[in-house]
């Protein structure tokens, strides 16, 4: 039993690692979380977490720059159907394409595109930074115990505009609706940072670690 947090050089994994380690330990699986960029570790993982901070093209390029890493992720997700969680840009990479800086292809596992946030109220600043309250659109095992109104910590300037609303599990309001959680088959993605969202975030991590799609 191992959860691999994919370390492809796109952001600070310290907090994510600590949060996943803590919740794995609470579930009686201490020591089951690894941070790795090795394709062989991904090949053996039974759960994958793809984090990501920064810009969409930079994260995608970083993911492609590790030889064998992306094929190993694709094999794990599509052939072995291991539970997968994308965080922030790691969630956005699930999209068909991103439009940050330039048009960049995403993994294409959840149809849609990643576009700049354009709040209807011009006084609202971008990035969307801080605590926003989730509106749950549809129940999901990963969201066990999470109700509409729970707060999560967001920091992003682009958001995932889904082609199919059925893939939206939760959203927040920021001068318009912003996709907060996506899900499909063995995939989930969160736009916010669960590792920085106190009890709500830890509960979602626990829900992911317990999830059997």
């Amino acid at each position: 039993m191992s959860t691999v947090i994919v370390d492809y050089g796109a952001g600070n994994l310290h907090s994510a690692r600590k949060a996943f380690e803590r919740m794995a330990a609470e579930a009686g699986r201490a020591g089951s979380v690894r941070v790795s960029a090795r394709p062989e570790d991904v090949a053996r993982a039974d759960r994958l977490v793809l984090p990501g901070d920064g810009a969409f093209p930079a994260c995608r390029d970083a993911l492609l720059s590790v030889p064998g890493l992306l094929p190993a992720i694709v094999e794990a997700v599509t052939r072995r159907a291991v539970p997968f969680m994308g965080i922030c840009i790691g969630m956005q990479l699930l999209a068909s394409r991103g439009l940050e800086h330039r048009e960049t292809a995403g993994l294409g596992w959840i149809p849609g595109e990643v576009v700049r946030i354009a709040p209807s109220d011009p006084r609202l600043k971008v990035p969307h930074m801080g605590w926003n309250d989730l509106v749950i659109d549809r129940p999901h095992p990963v969201l066990a115990g999470i109700a509409t109104g729970a707060h999560a910590y967001f920091v992003h300037s682009f958001h995932f505009r889904l082609a199919d609303p059925a893939h939206r599990l939760a959203h927040v309001d920021y001068g318009g609706e912003i996709t907060a959680i996506v899900g499909r088959d063995n995939l989930v993605g969160v736009q916010f940072h669960p590792e920085k969202s106190q009890a709500t975030g830890l509960r979602i991590i626990a829900g992911f670690l317990a999830w059997r799609p």
């Binding site: 801080g130 605590w131 927040v172």
Partner: peptide, 8 residues
């Protein structure tokens, strides 16, 4: 709705 942050 985004909340105002209080930062010590």
């Amino acid at each position: 709705m985004l909340k105002t942050r209080l930062i010590p």
